[in-house]
Write a protein that binds this DNA or RNA. Structure first.
Length: 595
RNA sequence: GGUCUCGUAGCUCAGCUGGAUAGAGCAGCAGCCUUCUAAGCUGCGGGUCGCAGGUUCGAAUCCUGCCGGGAUCACCA
């Protein structure tokens, strides 16, 4: 904001002084580094060639000119090719008086009707959610909030992968070996029960493969010819043929999974506006393929399978329908995309899906384009990196996964332990206390994950529990709670002149740096939106909290002496609290009044 | 092998649309609670930004090559 104003003034100044027109290059004006005096810096090196003058003399002339013409500039200093500009305090004071009471500072009202549809979570109903899903859900949910704060009309959707061979594996294993076990009888969350049978299938299947290999078969053939996999495939065919008994079991077991997922989502604090099921969209996908076949855009081979030729686009041939007539992943996604377009006509279709599926989404966009769906240009695949354990990738087959429910539970327990150790809850009621443990534990987990750039692979070490000190969610929550404590005390004391806020005094550096940070917030939200990156908000709110804690440590608020200063510092604290609350809200993290 | 991606302190990460002496947290060491919440604050130690070239007044950042890790190229999803 401010930097743009100064950039304009600088361009004007260069034209006035040197008679040269400059392109508005945003790198010309940047924030002054902490170790130098000043707020904004004009980098004059790029001008030296153009103007054929030394950096020093350009800097001096620019600084002098801006000082005398710009109402913003209080002082300037030319340091080895940089003009460091100190902005008048009145600018910061005006900003503060104008915006400090704005509870939704940095957040825009929804201005458009064309929605942005964002898909995240997308679980399979054959196993419970793990740490990877947590990252997915947190990024998706946070991004929805960030888009929302930028005025977008956001529709959060979840696509449940409720059909396919993997579901049939769980079903088959349950039918063969469960003796009718249910979540109730096993005292197990439904999704975990189903996961148990999925793992059981995989184990038995691998045993069969091993046996076949032992009797001389190649591994490749064994994988394909083991009796269990054949059974699973026949079950899938029966499912697609709508066999009543198969469908009944499928309904029953899926419901177990849904009940389990709902509980996990509730704990995590994420939700959706609309839930799609692949069982409801894969037929539409098949229709699209049929349509493409008729138009000669796709090809059918002798064995009945259908393919798309993407070699012209630099990719390969892609299977769309298997030779037995069943559909594959991409077929379903074609249908889902079409359905979503028909329902919302979105200006943007965002998919939060792991980076292992980059190729899949390239193909999806190309296929839709091939089929004449020009709106496929509006598809954006937000691909995020995997969460790895110190020893490498999580492997569900080897049981090397960090389960979402377990992890959250662990976080709550740690939060409780921590809080009790610090002796912070003498006067908390039972309900308040357990709400706090949940808030703090979740904040630690969410912030830990969201502060990392989504694109990057991140490492999670289950041995070392997630920190509660330093650059963490609880640290930021603590800062907020601390502010609320000050505000509660402030409400109790009377001081003269508390009705009218007057900033008729010199601000100290820490106050100015806090105000500067606050003024940055709207730009931070916009940047997070533009980059589809919640970590931008996380980094910002940490710096803000840290800066406030330093201020809090070094300066009295309620005992500052001058009532005008007391009043100002109370309002400054309130403003910081509001922005922390809003920013954390954008990350999907709650802040407690006390902790 | 093709394509994509990552490599920054002991560990986890910022910085990457080129700008000043590369930053945080954790871990380690040393301090600060009769004063608004010490889940806090302050200080110290810790770096050939994978390597080598190039472009530039200026490179962790851009380009090329190499080394190392990961993903993907399924009649899995």
């Amino acid at each position: 904001m401010l930097d743009h104003i100064l950039l304009e003034q600088t361009i004007l100044a260069v034209k006035e002084i040197f008679g040269v027109d400059l392109e508005p290059d945003t790198n010309l004006v940047q924030k002054t580094r902490k170790e130098f005096d000043g707020d904004l810096t004009i980098v004059v090196f790029p001008l030296t060639k153009l103007l054929r003058r030394s950096p020093q003399s350009i800097g001096e002339e620019l600084g002098q000119y801006l000082l005398s013409t710009s109402g913003l500039v209080q002082a300037y200093q030319v340091v080895s090719g940089y003009v460091n500009i100190t902005v008048r305090q009145s600018y910061w004071k005006d900003f503060f008086i104008r915006d400090h009471g704005n509870v939704s500072f940095g957040v825009h009202k929804i201005t458009t009707d064309e929605p942005v549809v964002i898909e995240y979570s997308s679980p399979n109903t054959n196993k419970p959610l793990h740490l990877g899903h947590i990252r997915n859900n947190l990024i998706g949910f946070s991004l929805a909030r960030i888009l929302n704060a930028c005025g977008e009309n956001v529709v959060k959707v979840n696509l449940v992968n409720d059909r396919g061979i993997h579901i049939c594996k769980s079903m088959l294993a349950w039918r063969k070996w469960s003796r009718g076990e249910t979540p109730e009888s096993a005292h197990l969350k439904g999704d975990h029960l189903i996961g148990k049978y999925y793992v059981l299938f995989e184990n038995k299947y691998r045993e069969q493969v091993k046996e076949l290999v032992g009797s001389g078969m190649t591994e490749e053939d064994a994988l394909r010819q083991a009796p269990l996999i054949g059974e699973a495939q026949r079950l899938l065919k029966k499912w697609e043929d709508k066999d009543p008994e198969t469908r009944a079991l499928w309904h029953r077991m899926n419901q177990w999974a849904y009940d389990g997922f709902d509980e996990t989502y509730r704990q995590m604090g994420v939700d959706f506006d609309r839930i799609y099921y692949e069982s409801g969209t894969y037929l539409l996908g098949k229709q699209l393929v049929e349509e493409g076949l008729k138009q000669g855009l796709l090809q059918r081979k002798e064995d009945g399978s259908v393919w798309a030729d993407l070699t012209d686009e630099g990719l390969d041939w892609k299977l769309l329908i298997r030779s037995d007539g069943t559909s594959v992943y991409i077929t379903q996604d074609l249908g889902t995309a079409q359905l979503r377009y028909d329902e919302y006509h979105p200006k943007k279709l965002v998919y939060v899906v792991g980076n292992e599926q980059i190729y899949h989404f390239d193909v999806l966009k190309l296929l839709l384009k091939k089929l004449g769906r020009d709106w496929s240009d509006n598809i954006y695949h937000l691909s995020y990196g995997m969460v790895e354990l110190p020893e490498g990738k999580m492997k569900s087959r080897e049981g090397k996964v960090v389960d979402a429910d377990d992890l959250m539970q662990e976080m709550f327990v740690t939060a409780e332990k921590m809080t009790r150790e610090l002796g912070k809850m003498e006067d908390f009621s039972e309900a308040e206390a357990s709400a706090l443990f949940r808030q703090v534990g979740l904040a630690a987990l969410k912030y830990f994950i969201l502060k990392v750039d989504p694109m990057k692979t991140m490492v999670f070490n289950p041995e070392e529990s997630i920190d509660f000190n330093g650059n963490t969610g609880p640290f930021i929550q603590y800062t907020y709670a601390r502010i609320q404590s000050v505000l509660r005390k402030a409400a109790e004391v009377n001081f003269p002149g508390q009705d009218s806020l007057s900033l008729d005094f010199e601000l100290i550096p820490k106050e100015i740096s806090l105000i500067k940070l606050l003024a940055d917030f709207p730009d931070v939200v916009k940047e997070a939106e533009a980059m589809y990156n919640p970590s931008v908000v996380a980094a910002y709110v940490y710096v803000l909290a840290k800066e406030y804690n330093q201020f809090y440590h070094d300066h009295s608020i309620l005992k500052a002496g001058d009532p005008h200063i007391v009043h100002f510092r109370i309002e400054l604290s309130r403003f910081v609290g509001n922005v922390i609350n809003t920013a954390m809200g954008l990350l999907g993290i709650e802040v407690p009044e006390r902790m």
